[in-house]
Design a protein around this nucleic acid. Structure first.
Lengths: 201, 201, 201, 201
DNA sequence: GATGAATGAGAATTCATTCAT
DNA sequence: AATGAATGAATTCTCATTCAT
C-alpha cells in the first residue's frame, strides 16, 4: 500500500498516542483475534481511556483500517526487501511463513470478508501485492518458466501464500501432521523451479 | 465425528428442534460469520424463541460444538465418498474447492484459534481427517510416489487444503489474480502425480 | 386508533411490568420532554433495570410507539365521550384545552417530525381523529353551517387544536398575554356557531 | 432582541466566525431539530473545528441563546415590516404562516420548555412580540373592533400564531385534512374583521 | 484567536446466562 | 419440552466540557 495516508481531521497522523493505539490494537488482534478489537480492550492494553480511542478513531472501521494500513506498510517493506534480494522466490516463501506477519494477515482476511469498509482496502492491497510479486518472480525465473511444470507467477504467489497460511493456522491449532514434509517439499520444489543462486541469503 | 453426546446437553439427541437449531446456526455462520452466531440471531433464523436455543444448548460453546460436529460428519461423508472413488486425489481436490464446505470450515478454523473448547475438537478432527486422507492417498498413488517430485501424502493433503482455502478466501474478497492459473496448475500437477484412471469421474 | 394492538414477540401485551414501563415513559416525556425518554431515565423512574426496558422494547421506537398507542387510546376514548355528549363541539374544545392530554400530544407531534417510525403512526392517528371529529361536528352543527361565517368542520377541528396547543405551550413557558381573552373569544364564537343545547354539560 | 451581550461570551460580537457558527446552528436546528444542535454537528456544518464552537460559546446554552437572539432579531424585523405596512393584520398572518420562520420558532418553543436558561429569553421575547402586535393591531382596527365578534388584539395574535403553527406542524407530518379550508376561513375572517385597504400588498 | 488532547457521562443495543414455571 | 422474565456485562458511538498551548 504505497498510497499516501489519508489525512485525518482528528488526531494528527504523527501523534504518539495514535501510534500507541494502533500498536495496541494490532497486538490485541494478533493475540485474541479481530473480534476482540473493542474500544475497551484496546484502551486497556494501551493504558488509555476508552474515550480516547474514539477521539482518534471515530469508528471501529477507522481504527481497523489504520491498523491494517500500518501492518500493510510493514508487509510491503518486508516483501520489497525479499523481492529485491538475490533470491526473490525464496524470500517470498520466508515471508509467507513468517508467523508474526501471517497472524495479522489471516485476521484481516477474515475481517475483510465481513466488513465492507475493510474489504475494499484488503482486496486492493492483496491485488497490489500479488502484482508486485508477479513482476519480481518474472524477473527472477524469467523465461525458464516456460516449458517447465512451474506455475505462472501469479499462481505461484497464491500457492505459496495458501500453503503458508495453512501451516500457520494449523500450527496455531496444534495440528502438525504433514507440516515438516510440506515445508520440505516446497523448498525442494522452489529449488527446481528456480535454483538458489550462489551465495544466496 | 462420531463422539458420544456431550454431558451438558439436555435436549434429546434425536429432537427435530435440535436439528433445526443446528442447521440454522450453520447457516448463520456461513452467511454472517461465526461472530454472528448468537442465541438471538440463531433463534430468529430458526423461527424459535431464544430460550429454546439455550434449552438445547446451555452454553454457546455447546451449540458451536454441535454445529461443528454436524458439519464434520457431513465433511467426513463427503471425503469418504471422494476417497473411495476411482480417483481419490482428484476427489480430495474437489472437496477442498467446494466453497460451501470451505466457508464453514474456514469459520471454524478461525473460531477454534480463539475458543479453547472448540480448539480441541477442531484440531482432533483435522488430524483424523488428515490421517484418513494419508491412507487413501497411499492406496491411490502407492509406490509410484517415490522417485518423483511428489510430496508425501500428509504434505499433499495440507497443500491442497491450503490452496483451496486461499482460493476461497480471496474469492470471497473479490481478488482473482492467479486463481485460474493456480487451479489449472494444481490439476496438471495432480495429473503428473497420479494420472487419472480411465473413466475417472 | 381503533386498530388492534400489534402482537409483540417479546413481552406479553398484558404484562404488568410492560404497563409500568409505558406509564413511566409517558411521565418522563410529559415532565422532561421526549428527548429525555432514554432507557436509563425510564428505568430509573419505573424502579427497574435498564436492561429490562430493552427486554420489553427492543428499540426506543418500539417503546415510544407503545406509549403513543396507549396515549392515543386514552385520547380516543376521551374524544369519543366528548363527541357523543350533548354538545360535541364544546366537548372538543375542552379536550383541546385539557393540559394533561395536550402535553403528551405536543411532545409526540414534535417527536414525529424527527422520527420516521413515529411519524406514520402519529400522522395516521391525527387524520383519523380529525375525520371522526368532522363527522361529529357535522352531526352537531348540521346544515346550519352553510351560509354562516363558520369554518368547515375539518377547519374547525384544526383551528381549535391549534389554539388549544398555543395556550398550552405558552402557558408552560409562563406567557399569558391574551390567554384569557382568546379562551373567552373561542367560547363566544362557538356559542354563535352552535348554541349550547339546553342542559348541556 | 436587542439585549446586551451575554457576559460569558468570549469571541468578539462582530466576528465573522461567530456569525458563521450561529447561522450553521440555526440550519442544523431547522433541518434536524434542536436535539441535533451539538458542538460536533454544528462544527461539521460550518466547516470548523468543534473546539472553535466552544471557544465562541462556552456552553451549549450560550450557543442556543445566540441563535435565538439572531432569529428573534430577524423575526422582529419581519414583523416590524409587516405591522408597518398598509395591512398589519394580514401581514401578521403571512408571518405566522411563513414556514421557514415557523420551523425555527417551533423548535425554540419546544426547547424553551425544557431548558430554564432558554425559557426566560423566549418567554420575554414572546411577550414583547405580542405587546408590539397588540399596538399595531389596535392602530389598524381601531375602534371598529368594538361591537363586532372580533377578539381583542392580544387574543387575535395568539389565535393566528396557534393556527399558523398547527398548519406548519401538521404539514411537516404530512397531515393536510382541513388545511386549505382553515387558511381560507382565516382570510375571510380577517376580511370581515379588518377589510383589506385599497391597493394592499 | 484557535486548536488538539483528554475525559466522564450517557445513549442505544446486543448478548449469554440464569431461573421459575 | 418449552418459555417468559430478568440481569449484568460489554459494545459502539455521541456529547459537553475542560485544559494547555
Amino acid at each position: 500500500m504505497n498510497a499516501p495516508a489519508i489525512k485525518r481531521r482528528i488526531g494528527a497522523e504523527s501523534s504518539e498516542t495514535r501510534a500507541l493505539i494502533v500498536t495496541a490494537t494490532a497486538e490485541v488482534i494478533r493475540d485474541e483475534g479481530y473480534a476482540a478489537a473493542s474500544t475497551r480492550r484496546v484502551a486497556l492494553r494501551a493504558g488509555l481511556k476508552p474515550s480516547l480511542v474514539h477521539y482518534y478513531f471515530p469508528t471501529t472501521d477507522d481504527l481497523l483500517l489504520a491498523v491494517f494500513e500500518a501492518g500493510a506498510a510493514q508487509s510491503d517493506a518486508m516483501i520489497e526487501a525479499a523481492l529485491a534480494g538475490a533470491d526473490p522466490v525464496r524470500g517470498l516463501w520466508r515471508f509467507f511463513t513468517d508467523s508474526s506477519r501471517t497472524a495479522l494477515s489471516v485476521e484481516f482476511l477474515a475481517l475483510a470478508i465481513r466488513r465492507p469498509a475493510i474489504r475494499a482496502k484488503v482486496a486492493a492491497h492483496s491485488e497490489a501485492m500479488r502484482a508486485r510479486q508477479v513482476k519480481a518472480i518474472k524477473r527472477a525465473i524469467g523465461e525458464r518458466i516456460a516449458g517447465t511444470d512451474s506455475p505462472p507467477p501469479a499462481a505461484l504467489s497464491l500457492i505459496l501464500a495458501g500453503i503458508g497460511r495453512a501451516l500457520f493456522t494449523e500450527g496455531a491449532l496444534g495440528v502438525s501432521a504433514g507440516h515438516v514434509e510440506a515445508s520440505a517439499w516446497v523448498e525442494q520444489w522452489l529449488d527446481r523451479l528456480c535454483p538458489a543462486p550462489d551465495g544466496a541469503d
